[in-house]
Design a protein around this nucleic acid. Structure first.
Lengths: 189, 189
DNA sequence: CAACCCATGTAAGCAGTTACATGATTCC
DNA sequence: GGAATCATGTAACTGCTTACATGGGTTG
């Protein structure tokens, strides 16, 4: 059981959309799920081996020497539905930016401001990328499109929240220097 | 180097606010940073040992037999500022809810709806908890308060985004059943 | 005095990344 | 024919969690 249920779910899920090689699977996961999921080769290949041994996926005719295309089997589809129905495991959050801001007094106000502005820039880039994806998706009438839309919308809401937070945070940081400057001559009432 | 830089940063940061035991440190991290950070005993104690060996923290008189209170040393403070100034490592996201929704067609519309509603409920609970914390924080005039406020605000923005997304997502899910019901008799123009 | 909380620490093991080794195919 | 890309796989290592072992202190 080298690969976790989580990785199996992503791999089976990917193959449920179309048969492909391990390499393509990783690209698909990076491009389509990248906002909220990641798998490396070191997980994908062992997972493929395990799933094949269990008869949940099977190799199709190789497109070229040394490569093989995997397809999900009916048992694999059943297993996928089973895995999807399991309760999602709670995430252990590790947000390096917020950790640094929490100890922001040690770090210094200017460095904090840079962290926040950086976060805002990333959120803006992400948001514009997601808007494009959503535009494409809304002309897609496939049966998976509305579900994929849900994940894109989640990304957009999250990016907008990041943006709004960053702007508010910059205001708070302004308040710190403002308060200390004012505080040297007068205490605000 | 059993403990990572990340854990060292959290431990030194915690001790920069007040000297305490490893046990208390873990409680503090859980309660104060829990929204965006986690450390387990298995990381904290080895990290404390390493940091003590490096002279970055030191044991103070024990409050009771078998326990020791750690305090940060001047070198430790310097090291903390160094660590905080390092670029935050990008997070590898693993959002089980979004992964399941992406393959939502396999999972089924009803199960998706339950996932979304569950997410909404969690966001609501989180939001009300954070509002209380913010209220307390705004009467705190300590020098760390504005920085801590930044992290609380981030949590609130994130929770509100979750809430808004969940409501929009439920609308999209309604659209699926609505569309398929309408589609059985007529194709929408 | 039993139950519960405070407190420290270790060991086993899983999950996950990275780097490496290898080679086919395509395109310039 | 050389570079870039497609493709597979393994091994070493790091990070992190969990469970366990142990014992002091407090409180009902």
């Amino acid at each position: 059981m080298a690969a976790s249920d989580q990785t199996q779910m992503a791999v089976l899920g990917g193959l449920s959309i179309a048969p492909m090689t391990g390499y393509a699977l990783r690209e698909q996961i990076r491009d389509a799920l990248g906002q909220f999921w990641a798998e490396s080769f070191g997980q994908i290949y062992p997972a493929l081996a395990t799933l094949e041994r269990q008869g949940l996926i099977e190799r199709q005719a190789a497109l070229r020497a040394g490569s093989s295309t995997f397809a999900i089997t009916p048992q694999g589809s059943a297993r996928l539905r089973e895995l999807l129905a399991e309760a999602p495991q709670p995430v252990k959050p590790r947000n390096g930016v917020l950790l640094r801001l929490f100890f922001g007094r040690q770090l210094g106000e200017e460095a904090c401001r840079r962290l926040v502005m950086n976060t805002r820039a990333k959120a803006e880039a992400e948001l514009s990328g997601l808007r494009d994806i959503r535009a494409e998706l809304q002309s897609d009438t496939g049966p998976d499109a509305p579900y994929i839309l849900l994940t894109v919308l989640a990304g957009e809401h999250s990016a907008r929240a990041s943006l709004a937070w960053a702007n508010e945070a910059l205001g708070v940081l302004d308040g710190i220097s403002g308060a200390s400057a004012a505080g040297s001559s007068a205490v605000p009432r």
